[in-house]
Design a protein around this nucleic acid. Structure first.
Lengths: 219, 219
DNA sequence: CTTTTGCTAGTGCGACTGTACTACCAAAAA
DNA sequence: TTTTTGGTAGTACAGTCGCACTAGCAAAAG
């Protein structure tokens, strides 16, 4: 029985080949044969590692998510809440070439999840992780006295979540823009503005925390 | 020579059939044959109306954009700047079923534009229109004295732009969520917070308005 | 009338898709 | 040694794809 340890390693390599194909030619081009050729193996072998085409895409998407989670989890804690939140948020943005490629894969599989049930559950899980990360950031600002006392934390978390996803999309699609500094400035501006909120919108008579979510840790 | 007036009308019908297919089965399913069947015509006829598959998708995307532009353009002006900006911004969000379907098509073709050059140019044009709309909104707030005097308008426009796109994506992908009221609240919170900005981030020594843009009107 | 013209339907072609399946190989187990 | 087993390669199949092409139809032009 040959090397049985590399099984996961080989799957990882196939997933990275999938990334390259998606970034280069789009998710539609990421067929079993194409990815196999990119990775230098036969289609039959790929099918042995991933039972179905969906499995391959799900694994490729999950690997993107895992890496992002690992990156954030390995960040050193900072005494200053604002600096720490800025650092975490910036880490979630595609500010360099590597993360931009990952985000490209992420967004491509995101929309592809509309048709694929397996992909959709992975996508939804990632969305919840991202939401919880935003809640954590708002909470961190609050405990660091860098959040307006009267702020609706859940609302601010959702606002930050939307801002981050929007920035990520714009950074990814503004292709040639080699200078993502403007995104950092938008981020600093937003986080800074949370400290001294304007007048609360004296909210409409709605429930305090509307959107449906379920618990999860970090990212 | 039979009805030559309906030519555009028929193209419009085909584009709407394309929307239905994309919303139901994803952009990958929007082939020439499938769309033709959805519209009740033969594939040969479709090909006569749209020379190529890309032409069909570009036209379908352009129609989404045109409708959004028309919706905003037909809005009555309001004396109060905050209310007007809130109304325009809310109009750009997929808050009802119809606009959610349009946004779904928009986002699907958005990522498909990564592979299709014709689609990409249409996408980039839409992005610039959306950016300019955000600049207009920030300017409208300023002239209505509803924007902090020291605010960096270009920065705020980019921030609003990211927020709107993020909200649109979240509204679209949070499928079952029948109550989009939370998005309205986030929007009101954001626009309200622009009036009394916190301390400006005492910006890094970068250029004042970094991202590359070119002029265009409304939406 | 006949001719022309705009449009439709249908078919065919080469390429590619996901998946199933079989043959083969080499290392571990007996 | 032989047997078993995890992994690889290659092929086959039914289906779909975009696109090209031809034949036919119905209304306008002559």
């Amino acid at each position: 029985m040959p090397k049985l340890i590399d099984h996961d390693e080989r799957r990882r390599q196939l997933a990275e080949a999938t990334w390259r194909v998606i970034v280069r030619d789009g998710v539609a081009a990421a067929s079993v044969r194409t990815v196999a050729a990119e990775a230098g193996v036969s289609a039959g072998s790929l099918r042995h590692l991933f039972g179905t085409h969906s499995d391959l895409l799900v694994f490729a998407l999950q690997l993107v998510i895992d890496r992002a989670v690992a990156r954030v989890a390995s960040m050193p804690p900072q005494p200053d809440a604002v600096r720490e939140v800025e650092a975490v948020a910036a880490e979630l943005l595609p500010l360099d070439r590597e993360r931009r490629a990952e985000t490209e894969v992420y967004l491509a599989l995101f929309t592809a999840a509309g048709t694929d049930d397996d992909l959709r559950s992975t996508r939804d899980m990632a969305r919840r992780q991202m939401q919880d990360a935003c809640r954590w950031m708002v909470g961190r600002l609050a405990e660091g006295a860098a959040l307006d006392a009267g702020a609706d934390r859940e609302l601010e978390a959702l606002r930050l979540y939307a801002l981050l996803d929007g920035l990520a999309a714009h950074l990814t699609y503004d292709a040639a823009d080699a200078d993502p500094e403007w995104a950092r400035r938008v981020l600093r501006r937003h986080i800074g503005s949370l400290a001294t909120s304007g007048p609360q919108p004296s909210a409409a008579p709605g429930p305090p925390t509307p959107p449906p979510t379920t618990g999860d840790r970090d990212r």
